[in-house]
Design a binder for these strands. Structure first.
Lengths: 258, 258
DNA sequence: CGAGTTTTTGACGGTTTTCAAGGGCGGTGG
DNA sequence: CCACCGCCCTTGAAAACCGTCAAAAACTCG
């Protein structure tokens, strides 16, 4: 496992796969959102290559030179940073239509690994060419900025989660986020099939895998979820949402008289 | 407190303050890094306004329309998000030469408050004009991308801190980060004067203020710091750094035989 | 079908939070 | 100038939460 994607000659014809943002089903959730036809056409000229990534393989690794962004076309990824000492921390999960690689923009070097959690396919977007094109098209330029800006906001949301929520609220938040993203893609927002292990969820949420498992069990016992291994059904989304604002951590009162 | 900056008519002549990135002492740590003379000159034409912000006032607030980035010229800020229920979570501290406002790029609306922790002054950089100019100058465009990219990497570093470090390691990391940033500005990296309260450090690090205080006391008792209220002296930076890789959390072994 | 991984569950211990009280510092007003 | 007051910081003790260790069950893949 963890063989580099480029090293797996599974589909030598990868580069010849036809790409066309204009006709792609992800048109509404991917990079071209909000672009006009002329702009999408130019973007198509730029995104000439699709690349398959086997389950368990890395699309890129920390330390790799940054050259392109990748749009997930099929499959599911995690990004992780490996600390000097071998610990792994998952910084995010990316599904169909989401972008990978923004971590490399700042320093021209990737700072995390992108690992496929199932067989996947990505569209390769050479970043220099994207910069060139976005100087021509204000709409594309704005879209690039928006995508980076949304990533910043997303990261700050995770910071709040990690910094101020209890285990159960973190798990609830994680599931609701996943459900929301699936719904945006027209998929079921109540019947989830997790693509990642408890361990991976745990290092993403700043919890141990046992704690994640216990939270699932507790939420099931309370009737909010039906859990069968990686198949999770959200039975009571409203109650899950209510858990988010329960914060044994950080009391906000005491503004009234001492 | 918390009066909006624009509402404080302390210095009506604010807009008339001369701005010149070319001659600014922050030239080496601020937005113009790496730009050539012509580019800096054009940037000067864009950054026409400085704005004072009183201690305790908000430069912008969550919900405000996003229109500009702000470069801290003097003073010290925190950015915070206030959850629906009134809890506050600090997402970062910004010092001289650092940018504020990137949180608004994604949605055209600010998602956090920027509060001055001491009397401050910022350079206002209208974002639309910055976009216009960066279409002309690839160097500036690249710089804008790099700044956003670095923010993403920084946020992911905070995620790792919050998700996998113990209280003491978080505090050590916080101090070392502060020291590093001061050093980059030619200031002492060993004698720090904190501009924020223990409470604010706590909500940034995902800890209670008492825990932060206890960590300071412990680090002082161990001879790594000298703590006198907000005056903190780093006595043993190497030992502080060593604390970062101590992780009672997340055992990395077990790769060897079961 | 069997080996290995993943998940669940239990008991225990450690870290951090919670609750509470006291002290220091700076600002305001007498 | 000094006293008072509010805010910030420190410290202690008890409790809650989560991590650690361990074992067994369930699932997956070869």
């Amino acid at each position: 496992m963890s063989t580099r994607a480029e090293e797996t000659p599974t589909q030598l014809s990868a580069a010849s796969l036809q790409v066309a943002c204009a006709k792609c089903g992800l048109h509404d959730v991917c990079l071209p959102v909000g672009l006009n036809d002329a702009e999408v056409e130019r973007l198509d000229a730029l995104v000439v290559k699709r690349q398959p990534v086997e389950r368990g393989a890395c699309l890129f690794r920390a330390g790799d030179r940054f050259e392109a962004l990748y749009a997930v076309r099929t499959g599911f990824f995690k990004t992780r940073t490996t600390c000097e000492d071998g610990r792994e921390h998952v910084t995010g999960f990316q599904m169909v239509g989401e972008l990978l690689g923004l971590d490399g923009v700042g320093t021209d070097v990737h700072t995390c690994d992108a690992v496929a959690l199932e067989d996947a396919q990505v569209c390769v977007i050479p970043f220099e060419k994207l910069e060139d094109l976005s100087r021509e098209f204000p709409g594309l330029q704005h879209q690039v900025h928006k995508i980076m800006g949304r990533e910043i906001v997303r990261d700050q949301g995770v910071m709040v989660l990690l910094g101020s929520m209890r285990a159960q609220a973190r798990v609830a938040s994680f599931l609701l986020d996943l459900a929301r993203r699936l719904e945006m893609r027209g998929l079921s927002s109540s019947a989830l099939v997790l693509r990642m292990t408890r361990q991976e969820i745990g290092t993403f949420l700043g919890l141990k895998l046992e704690t994640v498992s216990r939270c699932f069990s507790k939420l099931q016992a309370d009737g909010l979820l039906a859990v069968r291994q990686r198949r999770i059904q959200i039975l009571d989304p409203a109650a899950l949402r209510a858990l988010l604002s329960v914060h044994p951590l950080q009391a906000a009162d005491r503004a009234l008289h001492p």
